[in-house]
Design a protein around this nucleic acid. Structure first.
Lengths: 339, 339
DNA sequence: CTGAAAGCGCTTACAG
DNA sequence: CTGAAAGCGCTTACAG
């Protein structure tokens, strides 16, 4: 073993002061309590030996672990991992660490994870909840944990969240297709009653109603999607609906499935079919033709999530000041959405 | 506050036994020590109240936090986040948690992170080290921390690592282009003396030498890359080297830059220029034409990393049994690499 | 201005 | 077979 970890006791002994004194100085509570001389002596020594407090001990004593959990649907999804990346830095800047984990939209897995994290005295939870997860969130709130939901939320629960204006964004996406000259716009989405999916759907419907166009909705179940069956399902949908002249995809992974199918069948975009996708992706910028997409404001989302979380963390009671942030998505118009 | 956290003392009091007894039973050290009757009584009660030990306290006492750090270059990169996703599950299955963080290939940031994690009594480190990071890794080893490097390694250091056969993979990539009918193969890489980049470069050179072809190497500095200047740099490189009839990219993000440029200039792939990239990506499968790539075995890498880490964690001394795993990359031949 | 002491929730050597 | 007690490294109310 190399150098042994130095503790507050070692410092106190070495400097002939009490650990109380050292602790006060380290925690900036020395004001009007400890003489400047002693303060300086301790600070100098601490710097010299590079002492760092043991956070496990601090955590045990204070009941705070300085860890925030970031529970998303899938950490390998670019949308989530980009946000994670941004939040990581902000967390560290404020003395917190971030543990990421993936729920895979599985209620049981998410519940297990929360249990695990409670044992670890995690300080706060940022969560993209799976469907029907109200009860678990409710329990966290009951225990006064700071909780921020994002990407989706529950109407019935009094909890902070950060989302984007899904309905308006979906509406604008469809509007863009209409203005691009398309009339028969099919909507490909997930079978889900989560808020973000419901809002996107209602945005689609609102636009279709407004322009008085034929409605066509195709829902892929999450199970089929995870089993990689969405390609063939989309293919069948297209075959059965030859009247469609445009597709609006509710997520970028559905759009990727769709593009794969269209590419395979040699369908020309946008001549034969227009395309817009929710969520931007590298793929859309490089695809031929480039694909119009509704981009979510990654940076603002990360900022806002962290801002709300930190605010809750520094309050005594985590629950006060519920903040509902709705950020604007922005349509990136590319080649695929106008003939 | 909802229900108060129950502690081992509460249990002992409730059941009229000592905390020693409870602790032994919880840790399966009751064998031949505690009567079956008491064991059952405690176990039943523990289950009934859903007691979970406080891991901060356990950690303080045992010196183990049950946390593994996974330090990568950039957690929002698909290659790293996919591996992270897979490792996460394995870690949890073994009672560990994973903290991810991004070094951004910055030596100072990486060093700060390690310092931070030491205070948190992290149990093990899985790291894609930035350049010139030998000293810091060496110190971790000196202090007997389990360390596994991956993606790259240091020859001089006696430490476990998981990499792929970069040289052979690069060689095969170039070979594929040669067999596809290309002669003037340029190599676009990062200015870096990290092992994976050196090995890929030497694989390229070996193939070029073997087939007696003209060599052309273009290096983008990491600084320029991060400043998003790689697009224009690649563009200049192409302009100055009109003789090139193929490009081999050392990473998928360089390839994306290259594709952007080629697309913009309307250069036909593979008729005018062949393309192969190291690292697979969604983009390559959907691009027109599809792009040949050298795919890294994500699952095997994650498996191997975790296997080595867990093995080291369960040894008393972390340093014994250095394992060097070199996994095979596989070439996914698509349309871009043969005329 | 400074310190002795309790206590956070565990584990484990030791004694019986 | 069982328990009292020390101790991991901190923070903080209390006393002086």
């Amino acid at each position: 073993m190399g150098k042994k970890k130095i503790s507050i006791t070692d410092i106190a002994k070495e400097l002939n002061v009490s650990i109380t004194t050292v602790s006060f100085i380290l925690n900036n509570k020395a004001k009007n309590r400890i003489s400047d001389e002693v303060i300086k002596k301790v600070q100098d020594y601490v710097k010299k030996v590079g002492y760092q407090p043991n956070q496990l001990a601090q955590g045990l004593r204070t009941g705070k672990s300085k860890i925030i959990v970031f529970m998303v649907e899938d950490i390998s999804d670019a949308f989530f991992s980009s946000i994670a990346r941004l939040m990581e830095g902000k967390a560290y800047d404020n003395g917190y660490k971030l543990i990421f984990c993936s729920t895979e939209n599985d209620k049981d897995k998410a519940r297990d994870l929360i249990r695990l994290f409670k044992d670890r005295q995690v300080d706060g939870y940022i969560i993209t909840p799976p469907a029907d997860f109200e009860q678990e969130i409710h329990e966290l709130l009951e225990e006064d944990f700071p909780v921020v939901l994002f990407d989706r939320y529950f109407e019935e629960l009094d909890v902070s969240h950060v989302i984007i204006n899904n309905q308006e964004s979906a509406f604008n996406s469809v509007k863009n297709l209409v203005e691009g000259g398309f009339r028969n716009i099919g909507y490909v989405t997930l079978e889900s009653n989560q808020s973000q999916m419901k809002d996107r759907l209602s945005g689609y419907e609102k636009a279709i109603d407004l322009y008085d166009l034929p409605k066509s909705i195709f829902k892929v179940s999450f199970k089929d999607f995870k089993a990689h069956r969405s390609d063939e399902l989309v293919e069948t949908y297209l075959k059965e609906n030859p009247q469609l002249d445009a597709l609006f995809f509710a997520t970028n992974y559905l759009a990727k499935s769709g593009l794969k199918v269209l590419k395979k069948k040699g369908v020309k975009i946008p001549e034969q079919i227009g395309v817009v996708s929710f969520d931007d992706s590298d793929v859309f910028e490089l695809y031929t033709p480039t694909i119009t997409s509704l981009s979510q404001p990654i940076e603002s989302i990360a900022d806002k999530l962290m801002e709300i979380m930190l605010k809750q963390l520094t309050n005594i009671k985590g629950r006060n000041k519920i903040i509902h942030a709705e950020l604007p998505g922005s349509l990136i118009v590319r080649e695929s959405s106008h003939k």
